[in-house]
């Protein structure tokens, strides 16, 4: 009888191995034929346009909240005028990418895990294979490309509405001059912040969210209860991995760019 630690370790190693296999197959599939173009466009729409509302709302309220909070703190040092510096840096370097990724994990990751999980338990994935379609090319590659492409786009939108939301609070609540706010936002950022922290991170997060969700969905078993479990696992594992990846990508980018 294997011990708990032994069986847990084996299962964990198996999950990692299967995740890597799926990811490699999906990456290979993205650079070779056949490519299911209409599925890619459908997924770009589902991930990008479908997530716009939640990303806009998250971005604007986050920007407004940190401006209001920072205003109070900066007042203690008489530095209210530089609130834009703090809001811009926070949104672009950290909050924009991470919060957008977390929102996408909840919305897109759960949806993918539930959809693929349902297809798995109703034999639709096997039916695809029996009909001569590679499920990785048909289902995983379009979702992976959509996540990889649309997460940075949504992050940029989130950054912009977040900083704009910050401007609303800075202008009408903190009574900071608009010109001062915007020049402060610009002064607080280096180019590395924008293309490094602001754009590299979302690519990594988008890839993680979607590949984890696809992996979990494709390994679903146990009927409808299994689909529910997969959805939960996709959101929990995706969120934790996004936050962990944020730390490691930060460390790498700081070492490389600054």
């Amino acid at each position: 009888m294997p011990s708990f630690v032994e069986s847990w370790s084996k299962n964990a190693a198996l999950e990692v191995q299967e995740y890597i296999r799926l990811t490699l197959a999906a990456v290979r599939g993205a650079f070779s034929r056949p490519l299911y173009r209409h599925d890619i466009i459908e997924q770009l729409d589902a991930v990008g346009i479908g997530s716009l509302t939640v990303v806009l709302l998250t971005g604007i309220f986050t920007g407004m909240a940190i401006t209001a909070q920072s205003g109070l703190t900066l007042d203690q040092f008489g530095a209210r005028a530089v609130v834009g510096r703090l809001v811009g840096a926070s949104m672009i370097k950290e909050l924009g990418p991470v919060l957008t990724a977390l929102m996408l994990t909840g919305r897109v990751g759960s949806g993918i895990a539930a959809e693929l999980g349902s297809m798995m338990v109703t034999d639709q994935i096997n039916a695809l294979r029996a009909l001569g379609t590679d499920p990785i090319r048909k289902l995983v590659v379009p979702r992976m490309l959509a996540g990889f492409i649309m997460t940075p786009v949504l992050t940029v939108i989130s950054d912009f509405v977040g900083i704009s939301g910050g401007w609303l609070v800075a202008r009408f609540q903190l009574q900071v001059n608009s010109g001062l706010y915007w020049s402060s936002v610009r002064d607080g950022l280096y180019m590395q912040d924008v293309y490094g922290m602001g754009l590299v991170k979302p690519f990594v997060f988008g890839f993680i969210i979607v590949t984890v969700a696809c992996h979990v969905g494709m390994r679903t078993s146990g009927g409808t209860a299994g689909v529910g479990r997969s959805t939960t696992v996709a959101v929990v594992a995706g969120s934790v991995l996004v936050i962990a990846a944020d730390f490691f990508v930060n460390q790498i980018l700081v070492a490389l760019l600054y």
């Binding site: 109703t122 034999d123 639709q124 029996a130 009909l131 001569g132 590679d134």
Partner: peptide
């Protein structure tokens, strides 16, 4: 296997139609 499956049709237990 894809080439072999071109000449094989499988009808699944519950139909497994794409819903």
């Amino acid at each position: 296997m894809m080439a072999v499956r071109a000449d094989l049709g499988l009808i699944f237990q519950e139909g497994a139609l794409f819903d």
